[in-house]
């Protein structure tokens, strides 16, 4: 069985984010990046299938500049077999559909039996790329998986609102987007990291995939015209002073509420 996992490198959850000079994205210099948390669950789901069937092959795919190599090495260190890195400035500024087109071109060459992707990315929060990729491939999909079982067909529990779950069966090949908390993500072992150095990362350009002119900022269906800090509404009354002073004021507020 061949399993493709789509991963995106996003700013680390602890990175300090500022809007860039153009006011259209964040400034990406000198911040730490990591594999999108939702995609870490996607990768873990694939690796668990490989744990059960060692003949399975897990291929990780990512789009982005040189820094993405680090995330792909991490994924290989965790146990993926090989990586495809679409590294091309022509892919920069792709919207969800452009991203899905690139991934679809890779998937068509790979013909995976299963595709995993994170439910959303921690930067864009659009939750669009995975199902768009499934659509372009003409395969079924489901979203927000919190469990995954493959026993011939695939059975997924997907998260609804208010803690409810929907159980869905899918024919294969299919694409499943994974919710955080679906599984406990493994760390790359030292042995895994050493082994990863010998695993191949296949670097491709947009033209290699036959998509010249069809993806990237120029082809985006939506443009981010402006990214900005949300306007401060009423907002909180920020208490100032030493810790003791602030604590005293908090106690006063709680007393006013009649809760002490």
């Amino acid at each position: 069985m061949k399993i493709m996992v789509c991963i995106k490198q996003v700013p680390h959850a602890d990175a300090r984010l500022d809007v860039n000079g153009a006011g259209t994205w964040i400034q990406e210099e000198n911040i730490k990046f990591e594999i999108n948390p939702y995609d870490q669950n996607a990768l873990e789901a694939a690796l668990q299938l490989k744990d059960k069937d060692a003949s399975s092959e897990v291929v990780v795919v990512s789009i982005g500049p040189e820094r993405v190599t680090q995330s792909l090495r991490t994924a290989l260190g965790m146990g993926a077999d090989r990586a495809v890195h679409v590294k091309d400035a022509a892919a920069d500024g792709s919207d969800s559909l452009g991203t899905a087109k690139i991934l679809a071109a890779v998937a068509k060459a790979e013909s995976p039996d299963l595709v995993f992707a994170g439910f959303m990315s921690d930067d864009g929060n659009l939750a669009a790329t995975g199902p768009m990729l499934a659509t372009l491939l003409g395969i079924p999909h489901t979203t927000t998986a919190v469990s995954f079982v493959k026993n011939g067909a695939v059975t997924v529990e997907r998260e609804l609102e208010g803690g409810a779950l929907e159980v869905v069966e899918l024919n294969t090949p299919c694409l499943v987007t994974t919710q955080t908390g679906m599984n406990q993500v493994r760390y790359a072992s030292l042995k895994g990291i050493m082994a990863a150095k010998k695993k191949p990362i296949d670097v491709k350009t947009v033209a290699d995939l036959g998509l010249a002119g069809q993806v990237g900022a120029g082809a985006a269906k939506f443009k981010i015209e402006k990214l900005y800090t949300p306007p401060k509404g009423q907002g909180a009354e920020i208490l100032s002073g030493s810790v003791d002073e602030v604590v005293g004021k908090l106690v006063g507020k709680i007393k006013e509420l009649g809760l002490l």
Binding site: L17, V19, I26, D122, N125, K223, T229, P230, P231
Partner: peptide, 12 residues
């Protein structure tokens, strides 16, 4: 919103 609510955006 982008980045889990950290920024707002205008999309055209």
């Amino acid at each position: 919103r982008f980045f889990n609510g950290k920024f707002d955006s205008r999309l055209r």
